[in-house]
Design a protein around this nucleic acid. Structure first.
Lengths: 205, 205
DNA sequence: GTTCTTGATATGAACATTCATTATAAACTA
DNA sequence: TAGTTTATAATGAATGTTCATATCAAGAAC
């Protein structure tokens, strides 16, 4: 029993090593420029281990994708349960995304920037994955509650998160030198003016 | 002389056929899922022609990239010389991008969505290419002229074009069913409220 | 306690395939 | 004639995948 747990732990470590290496190489070089051999070298495991644990090149990407989407979903859920109003929720989403862009750059890059359709053709597009659906629900709820202007939900979503996502992309591309959180207040003040009924509260400007 | 021109013309036709095929396949399947043989078949030319005219796989992508960036630059230049105020210029940019997304879907997809860094590692990032630089200059001029709120230029650019770019991405991903121009007025009304000093003129709402 | 057996996993050289590129000769064009 | 296109085949490097073997932990037999 104890032995099994130990074994399972070691197993988990190897899986994590592989996924860590894959994330690193995918975000640096792209999926197609990353060979199984590269991952094997970077992770310090054998090729066989990758096939034993995942099954193949695409399966590694799929597992990584699932893990990170799950992570994003947890983040969104945490925000939704912590904040009540549409304004506070949406602002928290942008705040967390900006923080994550600095702290977990590779995660954000892989989730927001990678073209999954090209290497995971069977996965639904990222926009229809759980965390993104929940973001849209968040906005729809805000409109229904009269906290956001009545407008097409897609337009509302694009106006609410579009500017922030653009900033993230520019930051990931090395165009913006300063950490994103530095821009949070200014950006959000303007973003919310677009969609919000009430202005941004004084203490968040 | 006349003969040379005819020859050059035929030559140009072949080159265009190759680039058209490449654009089509790149946007549908991605660069790495598109082989030279795929392009050759789709274009109805021989492999030799591709190597004679371009030199190799990456060179095709590079030529295509250059052509489309040049096209975008012309579009931006035309807008800049046709309109005078920051508002009219920026709105025209969004309008043209929305139209192009419907009419030249593949061009827009390749320019805005493709990860060029992965297959053209020597090219500078798209954000620092001429047309994008000119867009930022456009915004900076608007701020200097007092037509746009004084704010960080990156934030201004993200607020001005971020929502529109997000809409384009959603449309390209098949999330939005209606043609983008249907959303133009509503989106721009909200976008401009974010960054403009004066409101959107009556006749453009 | 020592040795043997077992099951699960790790290893990495070998294999098979893909695919960019080169080569070649015949047909075509100016 | 000289240059280009075409059609086809050949080449070889890159790389995804397989599999026989090695490793090792945990009991079983003695």
């Amino acid at each position: 029993m104890r032995a099994n747990r130990k074994k399972a732990l070691r197993n988990q470590l190897i899986r994590d090593d592989i996924l860590d290496a894959a994330l690193h190489l995918y975000t640096r070089d792209g999926y197609f420029n990353t060979s199984i051999h590269d991952i094997q070298r970077e992770a310090g495991v054998s090729i066989g281990s990758i096939y034993n644990n995942f099954g193949g090149k695409e399966a590694v990407a799929k597992a990584l994708y699932g893990q990170l989407v799950g992570h994003m979903e947890n983040v969104v859920d945490a925000i939704a349960s912590k904040h009540a109003t549409a304004h506070n929720r949406c602002r928290a989403v942008v705040e967390v995304l900006f923080d994550m862009t600095e702290r977990e750059t590779e995660t954000v890059g892989f989730i927001l920037n990678a073209k999954h359709k090209e290497f995971l053709p069977d996965e639904p597009p990222i926009c229809s994955s759980q965390p993104f659906v929940k973001l849209r629900d968040m906005i729809q709820a805000g409109i229904d509650a009269g906290q956001m202007r009545p407008m097409d939900p897609w337009v509302a979503a694009a106006c609410t998160f579009g500017p922030a996502l653009r900033m993230i992309q520019l930051r990931l591309d090395g165009m913006i030198a300063a950490p994103l959180p530095d821009y949070l207040d200014e950006l959000w003040l303007h973003s919310w003016r677009t969609v919000g009924v009430d202005p941004v509260p004084e203490d968040l400007r």
